[in-house]
């Protein structure tokens, strides 16, 4: 960085090849950290954390439900920001990141809903409650599905990228409004018997494994996002020399000399 306004890093960041090669160097470490954190967090939470006084053992689902929900919501913003960067700076790479984030986020949102439903049965006696947070999560899933569907509706990949980036941005503006409205709607209709607000303070022995799991999910998200983006890069850059070199090295076909 010689001069004060050195923007080369920014343009290098936009280069798919630079991204592919740099992440390739860091991937083994990320794999190791992610898997280790996931295993440690799960075993700690499921077997070693003390059980909840009121909910008993069913509360252990929190170690999956909360981290997954965090990433499901954060993922939408990551996707929208990547789309916005693509629209503003016309950066190819950020569209690839956005495209990779959509199915990942949708899968995590589904998981958040599923673990929530399974947790609900022993706790409130029913799989589904129209609670504010659950309803917002369901709407988030629909928002993800909309972005995914729009992405693949166009023949031209470029148009699909731009259109879904635009939709993701519109969704981002709407998410706070949706959350506030659903919150208000719920307080209006709240059934007196069901109270879903969790305990305000958590015992440290319960909280530490949760923290590990949240960290593990952030690593997991980064890992899968990078892996998916690398696949996108290979497919889009298949005509370029460096991808062809990679393919030649990896090729184990019959007549390869």
């Amino acid at each position: 960085m010689g001069s004060g306004r050195d923007w080369t890093w920014f343009h290098r960041l936009g280069s798919p090849r630079w991204f592919y090669e740099t992440t390739g160097r860091w991937l083994p470490l990320l794999w190791a950290v992610t898997l280790a954190l996931l295993v440690v967090g799960l075993v700690w939470g499921l077997l070693y954390a003390p059980q909840d006084a009121k909910q008993g053992n069913s509360f252990r689902i929190i170690y999956l439900h909360v981290p997954v929900s965090f990433l499901a919501l954060a993922g939408y913003y990551i996707m929208a920001i990547a789309g916005a960067v693509g629209l503003i700076w016309k950066m190819k790479l950020s569209y690839m990141v956005m495209k990779s984030a959509a199915p990942l986020g949708a899968a995590l949102t589904f998981l958040a809903l599923f673990t929530g439903a399974v947790w609900g049965k022993p706790t409130w006696g029913t799989y589904w409650v129209w609670d504010a947070r659950i309803t917002s999560m369901l709407i988030l899933l629909f928002l993800y599905l909309g972005v995914l569907a729009l992405q693949y509706a166009f023949h031209s990949q470029d148009t699909g990228n731009k259109a879904s980036a635009m939709l993701a941005l519109v969704g981002t503006v709407n998410i706070p409004i949706i959350y506030k409205s659903v919150d208000w709607w719920y307080t209006l209709h709240q059934p007196a018997t069901i109270k879903l607000t969790s305990a305000p303070s958590m015992h440290p022995d319960m909280f530490k494994p949760l923290l590990v799991m949240i960290l593990a999910m952030y690593c997991f998200y980064a890992l899968v996002l990078i892996l998916n983006t690398r696949v996108e890069i290979l497919q889009r850059e298949r005509k370029t020399g460096w991808v062809r070199d990679l393919a030649r090295q990896a090729d184990t076909g019959p007549d390869n000399q």
Binding site: I139, F142, A149, L167, G171, N174, S181
Partner: peptide, 26 residues
Amino acid sequence: LTVSLRKGGLLLSLLVVPLYMPVIIF
């Protein structure tokens, strides 16, 4: 967003209905 698609109608509802929810609530 769906203007150039031939069968945009169903897709349009998938895109727009989630955004409609605050309006119907209030």
